[in-house]
């Protein structure tokens, strides 16, 4: 299996597709350490985002991945840890 990596660009694309973007927010700005709530995404938007990440990467993430990781950087790291773990076990 080729190595899969989840990037900020992937996250931004999925956020745009699944939940749209707040007019007052520039996703192309420096957002890595900004709380999702400040970016205009409430829990349901993150649920939708999580569902899209899961089906695109063929993985299953626990709900607390999204409650515990409140910024893009931390969510991207968590998803990549998950992808790396799958690779080691396959």
């Amino acid at each position: 299996m080729p190595e899969q990596k989840f990037t900020l660009e992937d996250l931004k694309r999925i956020l745009r597709e699944g939940a749209g973007t707040d007019e007052g927010v520039d996703l192309d700005g420096d957002i890595l350490d900004t709380d999702f709530e400040e970016l205009g995404y409430e829990s349901l938007a993150l649920l939708e985002t999580g569902g899209r990440i899961e089906r695109e990467y063929g993985i299953s993430l626990d709900d607390d991945v999204f409650t515990e990781n409140r910024t893009p950087r931390s969510l991207i790291d968590a998803v990549n840890e998950h992808l790396a773990a799958i690779l080691t076990h396959s």
């Binding site: 597709e17 699944g18 939940a19 749209g20 973007t21 707040d22 007019e23 205009g40 349901l44 938007a45 939708e48």
Partner: peptide, 8 residues
């Protein structure tokens, strides 16, 4: 409408 409202 705001972009955030369209998908929902």
């Amino acid at each position: 409408l705001p972009n955030r409202l369209i998908p929902q």
